[in-house]
Design a protein around this nucleic acid. Structure first.
Lengths: 233, 233
DNA sequence: GATAATTAATGTATTTTATACATTAATTCT
DNA sequence: AGAATTAATGTATAAAATACATTAATTATC
């Protein structure tokens, strides 16, 4: 019996705490999810979210950050707790609760080598494979959260490059809401918040004319927040 | 050394999972919180949220329900996960993460004897004592959640009796938002959703004229939900 | 039994925001 | 030079939010 299979039988009476990361990206107008081949028995080798047990002297949040950095090489990524998955029978191997945390990353920022080394793959959110345990549920919950949260907080920008065009931003929101938006009204609404800085440069990768690039203005946004303003897209 | 103090030293290397309940009520126009005298060492006897370790074969959610029922005698109470408190040093006694769950109860429904037996007390949310560990933070987080959530989902009704008047409902929302609302506009908005059933009866406890009682119409609300409608107050 | 006092209920005008929709602008490719 | 393509702008209409004043029903008091 190998040591992992041994664990499988030994630890039925011990409580474990794990964390799993629901890692979202945005590419080609589509929301994508980073998935991995599961590294431990049982069901080793199946598609899975990336996760880890929380160490005895480690904050749960730290554990999630650790995992994310190990895999992507990125630090300072937007990450937020989703919810805790605490069904007694959710994992056939251990009594293990898992704190789901979703992350939003700029898809081209991460260290591709690191990711490939871990047998990772970016799946279109609309075309996911079966994931182990309750991981498909976690993804569904995270997607729902993203949908709700993106409307009232400017977290969508975490999925775009630092510099982006209005049509790109619109594409992103269309992907999140799964709904087409009117381009004239979208632009009007987005710009009305005065939290975008228009740059001199244009992006010409998607059109002959080119579209002006913008940056999100964190400074102004934070100021506005303090004076009781409400972001909404 | 008594057995609880012994536990205190023995279990430093074991991971525990607990759940704590943030129990809200509404009375006299005020949001109130149900707090207890802590039952275990260390800091036994201090004001605390009510909680419990999650048993090895018990769902986390079940554990929270169990606690709530033990204390209040109530079942089928609105309860929702808030977030997980997972700092490694949050509890000096154990390595223990706690899943915070907030509950909304009709303050007169619960079994008063049960509550008194447990040394409980309803505190005005604006006038809380110091609670053990990170429990004040849990309450602050739960209050913030309630504030956010009540706006877009009709959870406020969970804090009112089955039958309530519009002025009562307004008082509740004023307490949640911590802000005065215009009575004419409030009434208009609330009734515009068509999810309140006007009864024949009046409540005369607060005025000579009396105010008509209403019930929340769950059936209609659920129908509307399915057809993509958005509740907002 | 008229009047004062008190809270409930209703209505309207104004401002703001959301929606629906068509044209012009800049650039590259042929 | 003109066709093709995506970006950018504007306007009219509908809907929703806000601000604000009066009337209605009832009980308590003189």
């Amino acid at each position: 019996m190998d040591s992992e299979l041994q664990d499988f039988y030994v630890h039925q009476d011990k409580m474990y705490v794990a964390t799993d990361c629901i890692i979202f990206g945005f590419e080609d107008g589509k929301i994508k999810l980073l998935v991995f081949r599961r590294r431990v028995e049982p069901i080793k080798g199946e598609w899975s979210l990336i996760g880890s047990f929380v160490k005895i002297d480690e904050d749960v949040q730290e554990a999630a950050k650790r995992v994310l950095t190990e895999i992507t090489g990125l630090k300072n990524v937007f990450m937020e707790e989703l919810k805790t998955y605490g069904k007694a029978d959710r994992d056939p191997g251990y009594r293990c609760i898992s704190v789901g945390q979703y992350a939003l990353i700029r898809i081209n920022d991460y260290d591709k080598e690191l990711v490939e080394k871990h047998g990772a793959h970016w799946y279109d959110i609309k075309d996911l494979p079966n994931l182990v345990l309750d991981h498909n549920q976690m993804v569904a919950d995270a997607m729902e959260r993203l949908k709700q949260k993106a409307r009232y907080q400017p977290i969508g920008f975490e999925l775009l490059p630092e510099k982006f065009t209005i049509p790109q931003l619109q594409q992103l929101y269309e992907a999140i809401y799964q709904k087409e938006l009117d381009d004239r009204n979208f632009r009007k609404k987005v710009l009305s918040h005065n939290v975008l800085i228009k740059l001199e440069e244009k992006d010409k990768t998607t059109s002959k004319r080119g579209a002006f690039l913008y940056k999100f203005d964190h400074k102004t946004y934070n100021k506005l927040l303090k004076s009781g303003y409400n972001f909404e897209i």
